[in-house]
Design a protein around this nucleic acid. Sequence first.
RNA 1: GCCGUUUUAGCUCAGUGGUAGAGCACUUCCUUGGUAAGGAAGAGGUCAUGGGUUCAAAUCCCAUAAAUGGCUCCA
Length: 649
Amino acid sequence: MIDITLPDGSVRQFVDGATGFDVASSISEGLARNALGVRVNGEVRDLHRPIGQNANLEILTWNDQDGKATFWHSSAHLLAEALEALYPGVKLGIGPSIENGFYYDVDLGEGRTISSEDFPEIEKKMLELAKKKSQYERKEVSKADAIAYFTEKADPYKLDLLERLEDGSITFYTQGDFTDLCRGPHIPDTSPIKAVKLLNVAGAYWRGDEKNKQLTRIYGITFPKAKELTEYLERLEEAKRRDHRKLGKELELFTFSEKVGAGLPLWLPKGTLLRERLEQFLRRAQVKAGYQPVVTPHIGAKELYVTSGHYEKYGADSFQPIKTPNPGEEFFLKPMNCPHHCEIYKSKPRSYRDLPVRLAEFGTVYRYEQSGELHGLTRVRGFTQDDAHIFCRPDQVKEEFTKVIDIVLYVLKALDFPDFTAQISLRDPENKTKYIGSDENWARAETAIQEAAAEKGLNTVTELGEAAFYGPKLDFMVRDALGRKWQLGTIQVDYNLPERFDLEYVASDNSRQRPVMIHRAPFGSLERFVAVLIEHCGGNFPLWLSPEQFAVLPISEKYHDYAQQIHDTLVQAELRGTVDHRDEKIGRKIRDAEVSKVPYMLIVGEKEQENGIVSVRKHGEGDIGSMPIADFIKSFQTQVADMMDGKTA
RNA sequence: GCCGUUUUAGCUCAGUGGUAGAGCACUUCCUUGGUAAGGAAGAGGUCAUGGGUUCAAAUCCCAUAAAUGGCUCCA
């Protein structure tokens, strides 16, 4: 008999050959029906594989991320089965599950292609195969047998994979007429796959190496219920509607010009208002947190980057040097602000009493990103970091880290990103030599980060080996309104630059000590942040950020003077907005203001002019009644203050 | 950077080897209208750029650029 411990802590006994399915059945018939797999002591396995030992066991269903992954991985096999049926001789690469769905890399052979026009036929085939309720059967095979099988099948990619696998660890999975080399696990049979949608076809190199042959990658997603597929497709549509590239154009926030150059955004007046509001917001918070604003040039002499080490590492892949009439003199566009800030630190001797020194700059930097990487505002070649560098003593790292976390949390709250996690990136403990800085300092900083994050109650994920070579870091990953993940703010400890720039402070014992440097950017970059914000709020910005907070809409030109008067009063109260002077009917003016997502429309005609009031219409909600202008201002300001948590106007 | 796709008016997009199209936006006029599109007229294009094939190219071919979906990359 084996003892099975369930997630609620209860322990049940089963016969030796018992499977996850038996455990699920003993709990409830419904659970057994919906079970897709099991997690045995943390390892995801097939539902029908004997457990074979005492274990902590969890039944995985569609509601579990690992359950979904298993479902999608099994769907990838189903796709492969369908492709083999429809495209005889197709060679298969790999077919994993991904965050939303799965893909399979295939080699169709010379002259054959698949396009989205072929999807319906493949989808139909998949559904037809799924209905057969074929079991996914696991079989352990010897390496020799496996090689024989795929040699027979003439599948070079599977043979390539097999070369790297050890005998004794090889398993095959078979469903219907299809057998694949696969570690598993899989769902019990194909029947729960009820809704299938192939999404995309793209090229991908075998093993991600461009020297290898390019395979056709087919992306798809499946669901146990047709309704869920419909909802998923609706979410994709919504994401398209919210695409910052589309909204950026429609709301006149930013543009690109081929003449100016790829990846170099031009901020339009409304986008600039938005961006400046964000800057101002953070600048105020930073002043309160003891930061000192600085300004540094957009270029730096080559020597600066030789010292920082960036010349050696990135020089050849960057924008190339700017030459001067003076032979041999070279400047680089700055790819980051840190070296300049190091030089500011060095501008005078620093005492331990002076630390921490916190230098902040909205610094515009230029990086020559690969042409295929450019994407709207999220990946550009010129962008502005909300950068700051904190130079502190090693014993201050934790406190400084905590304070930076406070700023990031403040930003996320004010901008309405309630759902986020923090990723702590530490050294790879197996490979300490590839990192710069003393073991002691690393240990200290890593502990400091973990403690600071824990004390702030952050929901964290720790990744070993993800640290930069120069120090550990903490990245904030937000989830937007559509549930997509974005990396935004970052906090990084740096032991490298203080060393390279020979930064020092005089300690209490008059010795020279090395400060620790902390890089941090709560937004990451203004470009990227604005892009994420646009998609998060679908262009309906928080009131305090909205480039155009109100539009005064006169009923006819007889009320233009009164409308202008209202506008001027609001501008005096530091609200931003316009008067719609066009010779159009009120319905038209309202429609246009709604489309451009203006939060408040103030309609003025005879009635308003006589009584000295405005009729207020709220975006997306409609008429909310008439009031004196002072009342409107007051309610407006209260709303803004609430959003900012009363800390900033 | 690599592979695929795309590029026609300010925007969104039709279109065909033989005189360049629509809707919206824009300009002017009519209309002075009360909570999501009033009417009419007009103006606007080297069909991304450069080559080639052809009697004839926006259309077919090649190159370049940019955008886009992926891959690789991201100090």
